[in-house]
Design a protein around this nucleic acid. Sequence first.
DNA 1: GAGACCATCAGGGAAACCCCCGAACCGACC
DNA 2: GGTCGGTTCGGGGGTTTCCCTGATGGTCTC
Lengths: 217, 217
Amino acid sequence: MTHRVFLVDDHAMVRAGVRAELGDAVDVVGEAADVPTAIEGIRATRPDVVLLDVHLPGGDGRAVLEALRGELPDVRWLALSVSDAAEDVIAVIRAGARGYVTKTISGPDLLDALRRVADGDVVFSPRLAGFVLDAFSAGPAAPAPAEEVTDPGLDLLSAREREVMQLLARGYTYREIGSRLFISVKTVESHASNVLRKLQLSNRNELTRWAATNRLL
Amino acid sequence: MTHRVFLVDDHAMVRAGVRAELGDAVDVVGEAADVPTAIEGIRATRPDVVLLDVHLPGGDGRAVLEALRGELPDVRWLALSVSDAAEDVIAVIRAGARGYVTKTISGPDLLDALRRVADGDVVFSPRLAGFVLDAFSAGPAAPAPAEEVTDPGLDLLSAREREVMQLLARGYTYREIGSRLFISVKTVESHASNVLRKLQLSNRNELTRWAATNRLL
DNA sequence: GAGACCATCAGGGAAACCCCCGAACCGACC
DNA sequence: GGTCGGTTCGGGGGTTTCCCTGATGGTCTC
């Protein structure tokens, strides 16, 4: 069964990219580039999931969500954004989105996330899960508890990968990590590559920042 | 005039390295590898400055300082550590040390730091100065005000260097920083190199970590 | 036993990083 | 007028990062 998806993003290229990546795996029932068009289109098509860009001209994507969540309780919302700032994530989650992924996500992963959200799961990019959970445990303002939280981030990594991740975040070079763990530089490269891919990070600086903000150092 | 210095560090190699680096520029009147030996030696030799490792077996280096500061008020203390954790720094400064440098410091810089401390100045590694000042401005528990604070860290950097530093810490590549600031990649390289040297960091990962722990992002 | 995952390592290559040197221009300061 | 520091670049070169393909062997599960 293909889920019915509505796209909201002000960049036509992004919408085209999402369409191309998703292919026939889902049914894209409509698109919108701004808040009014999105509200109208979603109201008309009643999709299973709305893939919602957080930053839109003429109001946040959150405005769309808040305008319709009462009216269309069966619609699930997955936030899509370039931003990984905690405030953006938490704001849209509090508004009612069932997930939040960044635009660095791969096509297959996006498809998987859409399906999970449509099925009622809660989905985050691995690197975001940490402070989303922090925010929920700290501030008791969240209404709906998550049935299932996928991608707890660290749990994606094997024990060895976690080990390498820590040393990467602490600034050690591949060579230093290798001699510290008594493995070759090439093995460290493998683990590092896996870590970055699994956490959807593109280089070790993002890893360092991620680890620092999540107090994993 | 050569200052009389006492070394406290549990690693013989570190003590040997300090001796070698300092050469005849100072008079090393004694060494110790643990707390009791240090207390005894310092009491016997009454040096101008004690170069004190923060982490010692059988008690912190702070124990040495607290045991002797009342008895020997003329002795100046310079903390030497591998740690740049805020709590370590602040604890030993509050205990009465007149400075704190990490073991990444160069020989000439260490000599300079020792002389400054012996002369009554307060000396920090540039990257530590930030949160030391923060701690003092936040918690008013510090007894002795510093006559002169050298190396205020961020203040070491020019305006342009601070700008580049921020973007570096945020993970932008040299190329991206260049196009964002409308300067060439080579100029970015120059600024980056200056930033790392001035903050005594060896690569941009350490910079990212430093900026993250100091909330400069 | 086949498949899936993990850990280990290799070769190769593009890009980025970091440093060395030198140079030019400019403004401030003595 | 000279010196100093900041900002702007260039050449050159070694190191590091990151990805690609591919290979081996171990464990675990179905």
